[in-house]
Structure formats: structure tokens, C-alpha cells
Deep mutational scan, measured.
Amino acid sequence: KRYRAVYDYSAADEDEVSFQDGDTIVNVQQIDDGWMYGTVERTGDTGMLPANYVEAI
């Protein structure tokens, strides 16, 4: 699945990823209600991200 960031996010922990509004997130997997795991296409960084900061595309 592919998602697009709708807000900027700065990683708060080493297992999270930072991204900017408009970034595409690929290979996304749902972890639980609030978190997903995926790769930021622009940077190649992979990690956890907050589900409410992205939307499906």
C-alpha cells in the first residue's frame, strides 16, 4: 500500500521515521490503531510512523 504524508513528522524515537508533508510512504503495514510501518520513498528511511499523519493514495 502507498500513503501520502499530510503533515510533517519528526521521529521521536530511533525506530520511527521522519517525513514531510507530501512525501510518499511505501510498503506500509498497519501495526495497531495508531501506528504503521513503512518506507519514506524520498529518503529511503524505514520505520514506524503515526497513522493519523498519512492518507491512502
Rank of each mutant, 00 (worst) to 15 (best):
D32H: 12
I25K: 01
R4S: 06
V40C: 04
Y9V: 01
D21C: 15
S18W: 03
I31L: 13
E16I: 05
D21K: 15
V26Y: 10
T39A: 03
W35M: 05
V40N: 09
G38Y: 00
G38M: 00
I57G: 05
A51R: 11
V26P: 00
G44R: 05
G47F: 00
R42G: 06
I57P: 03
D33R: 08
Q20D: 07
L49T: 01
F19S: 02
S18M: 01
R2W: 08
A12T: 12
W35S: 02
V17M: 03
E16T: 08
Y53L: 12
R2N: 08
D33M: 09
Y53V: 08
A11S: 07
D23E: 04
V28K: 03
P50H: 09
Y9D: 01
G44L: 06
D23N: 02
R2F: 08
G44V: 02
Y7A: 15
A56Y: 11
V40K: 00
S18I: 01
R4K: 10
I57D: 08
V17L: 07
M48F: 15
Y3I: 04
A56H: 10
W35Q: 03
M48L: 14
V17T: 03
V26I: 14
R42V: 04
I31H: 07
D33S: 11
E14C: 13
A56S: 11
M36P: 00
P50D: 04
Y3G: 03
E16R: 07
T24H: 11
A51E: 07
V17G: 01
P50M: 08
D45A: 13
V26M: 09
Y53R: 09
D8L: 05
R4E: 05
Q20N: 11
V40G: 02
T43M: 02
D13T: 15
V17P: 01
T24M: 13
D13F: 12
A12G: 10
N52R: 14
T43C: 04
G44F: 04
A11M: 04
V40W: 00
A12R: 14
P50V: 04
V6K: 13
D15L: 13
E55Q: 11
E16H: 12
N52K: 13
R4I: 11
N27C: 13
G22V: 02
I31M: 12
V28Q: 03
D15V: 10
E16V: 05
N27W: 08
I57Y: 09
W35N: 04
T39E: 08
D13W: 10
L49H: 02
A5V: 05
D23L: 02
Y7W: 11
D33Y: 09
A5S: 05
Q29F: 13
R42P: 04
Y7F: 13
S10E: 14
S18Y: 02
A5R: 00
L49A: 04
S10C: 14
I31P: 04
E41G: 04
V54L: 12
G34S: 14
W35R: 07
G22Y: 05
D15I: 11
V40S: 01
K1T: 12
A56L: 15
S18Q: 03
G38I: 03
D23T: 01
D33E: 12
R4D: 04
Y3W: 09
Y37A: 06
K1M: 12
T46C: 09
I25Q: 00
Y7H: 14
G47L: 02
F19R: 01
D8A: 13
V6C: 13
N52G: 12
L49I: 14
T46E: 08
A5Q: 02
S10K: 13
V54R: 00
W35G: 03
M36A: 06
Y7P: 00
L49P: 02
D21N: 15
Y53S: 11
V28N: 03
G38A: 05
T46Q: 10
Q20E: 09
D23Y: 02
Y3F: 10
W35I: 05
D13K: 15
D15N: 15
Y37C: 12
V54K: 00
G38W: 00
Q30H: 13
M48N: 09
V17E: 01
M36W: 12
T24R: 07
G38D: 03
V40A: 02
Y53Q: 06
D15R: 15
A51T: 09
R4Y: 08
R2K: 13
R4G: 04
T39Y: 05
F19L: 06
A51H: 06
N52D: 11
S18R: 02
D8W: 07
Q30A: 12
D21W: 15
G22R: 04
N27M: 12
Y53M: 11
V28S: 05
V40E: 02
A12V: 12
N27P: 02
M36R: 03
V6W: 06
Q29T: 14
V26F: 09
G47W: 00
P50L: 06
R42C: 05
E16M: 08
A11H: 03
G22P: 01
G34K: 15
G44A: 05
E14L: 10
Y9K: 03
T43N: 06
V6A: 07
V6N: 09
W35F: 07
S10Q: 14
A12D: 08
Y9H: 06
R42F: 04
V6D: 04
D33Q: 10
G44N: 07
Q29V: 15
D21R: 15
V6R: 12
S18H: 03
E41M: 09
M48P: 01
D8C: 11
L49V: 10
I25S: 02
W35E: 01
Y37V: 12
Y53F: 12
Q20A: 09
A11G: 08
V28Y: 04
D45F: 08
Y37E: 06
V28M: 07
E16F: 08
D13Y: 12
Y3S: 04
S18G: 06
G34L: 14
S18F: 03
M36T: 03
A12Q: 15
E55Y: 08
M36L: 14
G38C: 03
A12N: 13
N52V: 10
A12I: 12
V17W: 01
A56I: 14
V17C: 06
A12W: 08
D32F: 12
A11F: 03
Y9Q: 02
R4W: 06
D32S: 15
R42Q: 06
Q29C: 15
D23F: 02
Y7T: 12
E16D: 05
D21I: 15
P50I: 04
G34N: 15
E16Q: 14
D8H: 08
Y37K: 09
E41K: 06
A51C: 10
E55D: 07
I57E: 10
K1L: 12
M48R: 15
Q30M: 13
D45G: 07
D23G: 00
D21M: 15
A11R: 07
T39H: 04
G44D: 05
M36V: 10
G34M: 15
Y9N: 03
M36K: 04
Q20R: 14
N52C: 14
G44K: 06
R42S: 07
M48H: 08
E41D: 07
W35V: 04
G47D: 00
M36S: 04
E16Y: 09
V40P: 01
V40I: 08
S18V: 01
T43P: 02
G34E: 15
D13M: 13
Y3R: 03
I57F: 09
L49Y: 12
G34C: 15
A5N: 02
I31A: 09
Y37H: 11
E41F: 06
V17F: 05
D32Y: 11
A5W: 00
Y37G: 03
I25P: 01
D8M: 08
V26Q: 06
V28H: 05
D32K: 14
E55K: 10
M36H: 05
D13P: 02
Q29D: 08
G44E: 04
V54C: 03
T43Y: 01
T24E: 10
V40F: 00
A56P: 14
L49M: 10
G34R: 14
E14P: 13
D45T: 08
G38P: 03
N52M: 12
A12E: 11
Y37L: 12
D32G: 13
A5H: 01
D21E: 15
I25Y: 00
T43R: 01
V28C: 12
E14N: 11
E16L: 05
Y37N: 06
G22C: 06
R4A: 06
F19P: 01
D45C: 14
G47P: 01
